[in-house]
């Protein structure tokens, strides 16, 4: 496992144990930026395809998405605390079991050794995304789960042999992701009620 992948796993896990929406958004930003760095590290002489990947991972997932969601939640005055998974020993154990399962699963698949850690980390990210989705009913937490799953898929493609779907398909992907993000912002605004104003203390 390379250092960026170890850091990625930590970024996946930390927001699950720290129940704050700011940490969740920081986690998303960290995932996007780290994946962008991996793309850059893999091919410092950037082609069109890599450039598009950087825009997708670094700019859109790493910066724009967390900032857009942050601004909505701030506008709505949402309280700090936001549990991404139920805060109990069972959930925390389940998280660790899922990570272990992901690594065992990747070990069983036929593939070159250097691709295995990417698949393991992507599978862990995917399973944790589904775990968040399965345990939460709030719109924001569900959005976090969706972005975690999308990032898991992006991580899966990062470990694949140099494929070439072409920069134009990446371009369409970026456009669709941007529109989806705008749609998410709209839903979050519409479905998150403003926090009640603090009542004045009566002496």
């Amino acid at each position: 496992m390379t250092t960026p992948l170890v850091v990625f796993v930590l970024i996946l896990l930390l927001p699950l144990f720290m129940a704050s929406w700011r940490t969740s958004l920081l986690g998303l930003a960290g995932q996007g930026l780290l994946m962008a760095w991996m793309v850059y590290d893999r091919a410092p002489a950037l082609g069109l395809d890599d450039g598009a990947a950087l825009v997708d991972l670094g700019l859109l997932r790493g910066l724009v998405a967390p900032i857009v969601l942050y601004r909505v939640l701030r506008t709505r005055g949402v309280p700090r605390r936001n549990d991404v998974i139920p805060p109990n020993l069972l959930s925390w154990t389940a998280v660790l079991v899922l990570v272990l399962l992901a690594f065992r699963f990747a070990a069983a698949l036929p593939m070159p050794a250097h691709e295995r850690p990417f698949v393991a980390v992507a599978t862990a990210a995917l399973l944790l995304g589904f775990f968040v989705l399965a345990t939460q009913v709030g719109v924001f937490s569900q959005m976090i789960a969706v972005f975690r799953i999308e990032n898991a898929i992006a991580m899966f493609t990062l470990g694949m042999p140099a494929e070439h779907d072409g920069w134009w398909i990446r371009g369409v992907e970026i456009a669709v992701l941007a529109v989806t993000l705008a749609l998410f912002r709209w839903y979050l605004l519409a479905l998150t009620p403003p926090a009640p104003a603090p009542s004045e203390e009566v002496p």
């Binding site: 969706v146 799953i149 999308e150 839903y187």
Partner: peptide
Amino acid sequence: AIGASWRYVLFSTIGLG
């Protein structure tokens, strides 16, 4: 309708993912 629309997008995004 907006809640239904959100759940449609949520499930579709997950399914397509």
